[in-house]
Protein backbone atom coordinates (compact mmCIF):
# COMPACT_ATOMS: atom_id res chain seq x y z
CA UNK A 1 0.00 0.00 0.00
CA UNK A 2 1.10 3.49 -0.84
CA UNK A 3 1.68 5.60 2.27
CA UNK A 4 -0.17 8.94 2.34
CA UNK A 5 3.07 10.92 2.68
CA UNK A 6 4.51 9.12 -0.35
CA UNK A 7 1.36 9.80 -2.33
CA UNK A 8 1.55 13.48 -1.44
CA UNK A 9 5.20 13.67 -2.39
CA UNK A 10 4.59 12.01 -5.76
CA UNK A 11 1.46 14.05 -6.53
CA UNK A 12 3.32 17.28 -5.81
CA UNK A 13 6.34 16.26 -7.84
CA UNK A 14 4.26 15.24 -10.86
CA UNK A 15 2.18 18.39 -10.74
CA UNK A 16 5.27 20.59 -10.61
CA UNK A 17 7.25 18.77 -13.25
CA UNK A 18 4.63 18.01 -15.86
CA UNK A 19 1.32 19.51 -14.75
CA UNK A 20 -0.17 16.07 -14.27
CA UNK A 21 -2.80 16.00 -11.58
CA UNK A 22 -3.11 12.75 -9.65
CA UNK A 23 -6.05 12.57 -7.27
CA UNK A 24 -6.17 10.01 -4.43
CA UNK A 25 -8.69 7.89 -6.36
CA UNK A 26 -6.00 7.46 -9.04
CA UNK A 27 -3.37 6.27 -6.57
CA UNK A 28 -3.55 2.83 -8.17
CA UNK A 29 -2.01 4.38 -11.29
CA UNK A 30 1.08 5.25 -9.29
CA UNK A 31 1.36 1.67 -8.13
CA UNK A 32 0.79 0.07 -11.51
CA UNK A 33 3.19 2.34 -13.37
CA UNK A 34 5.92 2.86 -10.80
CA UNK A 35 6.29 -0.70 -9.54
CA UNK A 36 7.87 -1.86 -12.84
CA UNK A 37 10.18 1.18 -12.71
CA UNK A 38 11.27 0.27 -9.19
CA UNK A 39 11.98 -3.26 -10.31
CA UNK A 40 14.00 -2.08 -13.32
CA UNK A 41 16.15 -0.01 -10.99
CA UNK A 42 16.56 -2.71 -8.39
CA UNK A 43 14.56 -0.78 -5.84
CA UNK A 44 12.17 -2.53 -3.50
CA UNK A 45 9.12 -0.50 -4.35
CA UNK A 46 7.52 2.92 -4.51
CA UNK A 47 8.66 3.67 -0.97
CA UNK A 48 12.27 3.31 -2.10
CA UNK A 49 11.66 5.45 -5.18
CA UNK A 50 10.27 8.23 -3.02
CA UNK A 51 13.09 7.92 -0.49
CA UNK A 52 15.65 8.26 -3.27
CA UNK A 53 13.89 11.26 -4.75
CA UNK A 54 13.66 12.97 -1.38
CA UNK A 55 17.45 12.93 -1.50
CA UNK A 56 17.24 14.55 -4.98
CA UNK A 57 17.75 12.19 -7.86
CA UNK A 58 17.08 14.11 -11.05
CA UNK A 59 17.33 11.11 -13.35
CA UNK A 60 14.89 9.12 -11.27
CA UNK A 61 12.48 12.05 -11.02
CA UNK A 62 12.54 12.26 -14.80
CA UNK A 63 11.86 8.56 -15.19
CA UNK A 64 9.00 8.76 -12.71
CA UNK A 65 7.49 11.67 -14.63
CA UNK A 66 7.81 9.83 -17.94
CA UNK A 67 6.37 6.65 -16.50
CA UNK A 68 3.29 8.52 -15.32
CA UNK A 69 2.42 10.32 -18.56
CA UNK A 70 -0.04 8.79 -20.97
CA UNK A 71 1.60 8.60 -24.37
CA UNK A 72 -1.13 7.09 -26.46
CA UNK A 73 -1.44 8.55 -29.92
CA UNK A 74 -2.46 7.43 -33.37
CA UNK A 75 -2.16 8.54 -36.94
CA UNK A 76 -4.91 10.90 -38.10
CA UNK A 77 -6.42 10.75 -34.63
CA UNK A 78 -10.15 11.61 -34.74
CA UNK A 79 -9.92 12.05 -38.57
CA UNK A 80 -11.98 15.27 -38.69
CA UNK A 81 -9.25 17.64 -37.46
CA UNK A 82 -7.09 16.53 -40.35
CA UNK A 83 -9.87 17.00 -42.90
CA UNK A 84 -10.39 20.49 -41.48
CA UNK A 85 -6.65 21.10 -41.71
CA UNK A 86 -6.55 20.15 -45.39
CA UNK A 87 -9.79 21.82 -46.46
CA UNK A 88 -10.07 24.91 -44.27
CA UNK A 89 -7.11 25.79 -42.08
CA UNK A 90 -4.23 25.24 -44.50
CA UNK A 91 -5.90 27.15 -47.40
CA UNK A 92 -6.67 30.07 -45.05
CA UNK A 93 -3.17 30.18 -43.68
CA UNK A 94 -1.70 29.96 -47.17
CA UNK A 95 -3.86 32.84 -48.35
CA UNK A 96 -2.68 34.91 -45.38
CA UNK A 97 0.99 34.04 -45.91
CA UNK A 98 1.14 34.53 -49.70
CA UNK A 99 3.85 37.17 -49.39
CA UNK A 100 6.10 35.25 -47.04
CA UNK A 101 5.38 31.79 -48.40
CA UNK A 102 6.36 30.33 -45.08
CA UNK A 103 4.31 28.39 -42.54
CA UNK A 104 5.23 26.99 -39.15
CA UNK A 105 3.19 24.20 -37.53
CA UNK A 106 3.59 22.94 -33.97
CA UNK A 107 2.57 19.59 -32.59
CA UNK A 108 2.77 20.37 -28.89
CA UNK A 109 2.90 17.20 -26.77
CA UNK A 110 3.57 15.13 -29.88
CA UNK A 111 4.26 11.85 -28.06
CA UNK A 112 5.69 9.33 -30.54
CA UNK A 113 5.12 11.61 -33.51
CA UNK A 114 1.95 10.29 -35.16
CA UNK A 115 0.27 13.71 -35.21
CA UNK A 116 3.29 15.48 -36.69
CA UNK A 117 3.76 12.79 -39.32
CA UNK A 118 0.06 12.78 -40.21
CA UNK A 119 0.45 16.49 -40.97
CA UNK A 120 3.64 15.83 -42.91
CA UNK A 121 1.82 13.27 -45.07
CA UNK A 122 -1.04 15.68 -45.74
CA UNK A 123 1.43 18.39 -46.74
CA UNK A 124 3.27 15.94 -48.98
CA UNK A 125 -0.01 15.16 -50.73
CA UNK A 126 -0.35 18.90 -51.41
CA UNK A 127 3.19 19.34 -52.71
CA UNK A 128 2.03 20.82 -56.00
CA UNK A 129 0.19 23.65 -54.22
CA UNK A 130 3.03 24.18 -51.80
CA UNK A 131 5.71 24.46 -54.44
CA UNK A 132 8.02 27.31 -53.44
CA UNK A 133 6.72 27.35 -49.85
CA UNK A 134 8.75 26.75 -46.77
CA UNK A 135 6.78 24.65 -44.31
CA UNK A 136 8.20 23.69 -40.97
CA UNK A 137 6.70 21.17 -38.55
CA UNK A 138 7.97 21.14 -34.98
CA UNK A 139 7.03 18.34 -32.57
CA UNK A 140 7.72 18.77 -28.85
CA UNK A 141 7.18 16.59 -25.83
CA UNK A 142 8.44 16.21 -22.30
CA UNK A 143 9.22 12.52 -22.79
CA UNK A 144 12.66 11.81 -24.20
CA UNK A 145 11.72 8.19 -24.77
CA UNK A 146 8.74 9.18 -26.93
CA UNK A 147 10.81 11.73 -28.82
CA UNK A 148 13.42 9.10 -29.63
CA UNK A 149 10.71 6.90 -31.03
CA UNK A 150 9.27 9.81 -33.00
CA UNK A 151 12.66 10.63 -34.49
CA UNK A 152 13.22 7.02 -35.53
CA UNK A 153 9.77 7.02 -37.12
CA UNK A 154 9.41 3.31 -36.35
CA UNK A 155 5.96 1.94 -35.56
CA UNK A 156 4.56 -1.47 -34.75
CA UNK A 157 2.09 -3.24 -37.02
CA UNK A 158 -0.57 -2.44 -34.44
CA UNK A 159 0.24 1.29 -34.47
CA UNK A 160 0.14 1.64 -38.26
CA UNK A 161 -3.30 0.06 -38.34
CA UNK A 162 -5.02 2.61 -36.15
CA UNK A 163 -6.08 5.50 -38.31
CA UNK A 164 -3.54 5.30 -41.10
CA UNK A 165 -5.22 4.62 -44.47
CA UNK A 166 -3.61 1.64 -46.18
CA UNK A 167 -2.76 3.73 -49.25
CA UNK A 168 -0.68 6.02 -47.03
CA UNK A 169 1.10 3.07 -45.44
CA UNK A 170 2.11 1.75 -48.85
CA UNK A 171 3.14 5.17 -50.07
CA UNK A 172 5.07 6.52 -47.10
CA UNK A 173 6.32 3.56 -45.05
CA UNK A 174 8.82 0.76 -45.50
CA UNK A 175 8.81 -2.50 -43.64
CA UNK A 176 11.75 -2.93 -41.32
CA UNK A 177 11.78 -6.37 -39.72
CA UNK A 178 8.46 -6.55 -37.88
CA UNK A 179 8.01 -2.77 -37.75
CA UNK A 180 7.17 -0.04 -40.24
CA UNK A 181 9.36 3.00 -40.75
CA UNK A 182 8.18 6.28 -42.18
CA UNK A 183 10.18 7.58 -45.19
CA UNK A 184 13.33 9.56 -44.61
CA UNK A 185 11.77 12.36 -46.67
CA UNK A 186 8.91 12.73 -44.23
CA UNK A 187 11.16 12.37 -41.24
CA UNK A 188 13.18 15.28 -42.57
CA UNK A 189 10.04 17.44 -42.63
CA UNK A 190 9.61 17.26 -38.86
CA UNK A 191 11.91 18.55 -36.18
CA UNK A 192 11.46 16.93 -32.77
CA UNK A 193 12.54 18.75 -29.63
CA UNK A 194 12.29 18.15 -25.92
CA UNK A 195 10.15 20.87 -24.39
CA UNK A 196 8.04 21.12 -21.26
CA UNK A 197 4.78 23.00 -21.82
CA UNK A 198 5.07 24.45 -18.31
CA UNK A 199 8.33 26.14 -19.21
CA UNK A 200 8.92 29.40 -21.03
CA UNK A 201 7.81 28.58 -24.58
CA UNK A 202 9.19 31.62 -26.34
CA UNK A 203 12.34 29.90 -27.53
CA UNK A 204 10.19 27.89 -29.93
CA UNK A 205 9.35 30.89 -32.10
CA UNK A 206 6.00 31.79 -33.71
CA UNK A 207 3.50 29.29 -35.09
CA UNK A 208 0.68 29.68 -37.61
CA UNK A 209 -1.02 26.43 -36.62
CA UNK A 210 -0.77 24.79 -33.20
CA UNK A 211 -1.95 21.29 -32.36
CA UNK A 212 -2.17 20.90 -28.59
CA UNK A 213 -4.34 17.84 -28.26
CA UNK A 214 -4.98 15.41 -25.45
CA UNK A 215 -2.52 16.88 -22.99
CA UNK A 216 -4.34 19.77 -21.27
CA UNK A 217 -6.86 17.18 -20.14
CA UNK A 218 -4.34 15.97 -17.55
CA UNK A 219 -3.82 19.44 -16.02
CA UNK A 220 -5.83 21.42 -13.47
CA UNK A 221 -7.67 24.63 -14.46
CA UNK A 222 -4.97 27.18 -13.56
CA UNK A 223 -2.33 25.13 -15.38
CA UNK A 224 -4.55 24.80 -18.46
CA UNK A 225 -5.16 28.56 -18.42
CA UNK A 226 -1.48 29.31 -18.01
CA UNK A 227 -0.38 27.01 -20.82
CA UNK A 228 -3.05 28.40 -23.16
CA UNK A 229 -1.91 31.91 -22.27
CA UNK A 230 1.70 31.07 -23.07
CA UNK A 231 0.78 29.31 -26.30
CA UNK A 232 -1.25 32.35 -27.39
CA UNK A 233 1.90 34.43 -27.18
CA UNK A 234 3.51 32.30 -29.88
CA UNK A 235 0.64 32.85 -32.27
CA UNK A 236 0.17 35.74 -34.68
CA UNK A 237 -3.36 37.22 -34.63
CA UNK A 238 -4.57 35.06 -37.54
CA UNK A 239 -3.18 31.72 -36.31
CA UNK A 240 -5.17 28.60 -35.39
CA UNK A 241 -5.17 26.34 -32.36
CA UNK A 242 -6.40 22.75 -32.27
CA UNK A 243 -7.45 21.11 -29.02
CA UNK A 244 -8.43 17.49 -28.41
CA UNK A 245 -11.97 16.15 -28.60
CA UNK A 246 -12.53 16.39 -24.84
CA UNK A 247 -10.84 19.78 -24.40
CA UNK A 248 -12.05 23.36 -24.67
CA UNK A 249 -11.02 26.92 -23.90
CA UNK A 250 -14.51 27.82 -22.71
CA UNK A 251 -14.48 28.84 -19.08
CA UNK A 252 -10.71 28.47 -18.98
CA UNK A 253 -9.12 31.12 -21.16
CA UNK A 254 -10.41 34.22 -22.87
CA UNK A 255 -7.39 34.38 -25.16
CA UNK A 256 -9.10 32.03 -27.60
CA UNK A 257 -12.53 31.69 -29.11
CA UNK A 258 -13.97 28.73 -31.00
CA UNK A 259 -13.78 29.02 -34.77
CA UNK A 260 -17.33 29.35 -36.05
CA UNK A 261 -18.71 26.03 -37.26
CA UNK A 262 -15.44 24.14 -36.76
CA UNK A 263 -15.37 22.01 -33.65
CA UNK A 264 -12.00 21.69 -31.97
CA UNK A 265 -10.40 24.70 -33.70
CA UNK A 266 -9.80 27.99 -31.91
CA UNK A 267 -8.73 31.45 -33.02
CA UNK A 268 -7.19 34.23 -31.00
CA UNK A 269 -9.66 36.50 -29.29
CA UNK A 270 -8.42 40.01 -29.89
CA UNK A 271 -10.47 41.46 -27.05
CA UNK A 272 -9.78 38.57 -24.69
CA UNK A 273 -8.29 39.59 -21.40
CA UNK A 274 -4.97 38.05 -20.62
CA UNK A 275 -5.26 35.43 -17.95
CA UNK A 276 -3.38 36.70 -14.93
CA UNK A 277 0.11 35.38 -15.27
CA UNK A 278 0.90 32.63 -12.86
CA UNK A 279 3.96 30.73 -11.88
CA UNK A 280 4.36 27.69 -14.05
CA UNK A 281 6.79 25.74 -12.02
CA UNK A 282 9.08 23.30 -13.70
CA UNK A 283 12.76 22.58 -13.46
CA UNK A 284 14.85 23.90 -16.32
Amino acid sequence: MLRPEDFDFLAKLLKERSGLVITPDKAYLLESRLTPLARARNLKGIEDIVAKMRGHDEALARDVTEAMTTNESFFFRDTKPFDQFKDIVLPQVMAARMAKKSIRIWSAACSSGQEAYSLAMLLKEQSAKLNGWHVEIVGTDISVEMLDKAKAGLYSQFEVQRGLPIQMLVKYFKKKDESWQIDAGLRAMVQFREWNLLKDLRGLGQFDIVFCRNVLIYFDQPTKAGVLENISKLMPADAFLYLGGAETVLGISERFKPMAGQRGIYCLNKDGAATPSFPLKAPN
Partner: peptide, 26 residues
Protein backbone atom coordinates in the same frame (compact mmCIF):
# COMPACT_ATOMS: atom_id res chain seq x y z
CA UNK B 1 1.96 -8.25 -44.47
CA UNK B 2 4.51 -7.17 -47.05
CA UNK B 3 4.15 -4.14 -49.29
CA UNK B 4 3.90 -6.23 -52.48
CA UNK B 5 0.87 -8.15 -51.28
CA UNK B 6 -0.82 -5.00 -50.00
CA UNK B 7 -0.16 -3.21 -53.28
CA UNK B 8 -1.56 -6.15 -55.24
CA UNK B 9 -4.73 -6.13 -53.14
CA UNK B 10 -5.26 -2.40 -53.62
CA UNK B 11 -4.72 -2.71 -57.36
CA UNK B 12 -7.31 -5.50 -57.47
CA UNK B 13 -9.84 -3.18 -55.85
CA UNK B 14 -9.54 -3.73 -52.09
CA UNK B 15 -10.62 -0.69 -50.06
CA UNK B 16 -8.67 -1.39 -46.90
CA UNK B 17 -6.24 -3.94 -45.57
CA UNK B 18 -5.85 -5.45 -42.11
CA UNK B 19 -2.72 -7.36 -41.19
CA UNK B 20 -3.35 -10.23 -38.78
CA UNK B 21 -3.34 -10.48 -35.85
CA UNK B 22 -6.19 -8.01 -35.49
CA UNK B 23 -8.48 -6.96 -32.65
CA UNK B 24 -11.73 -5.08 -32.32
CA UNK B 25 -9.94 -1.75 -32.18
CA UNK B 26 -8.19 -2.26 -35.51
Amino acid sequence: NDIDHIQEAITAGANEYIMKPFDSEI
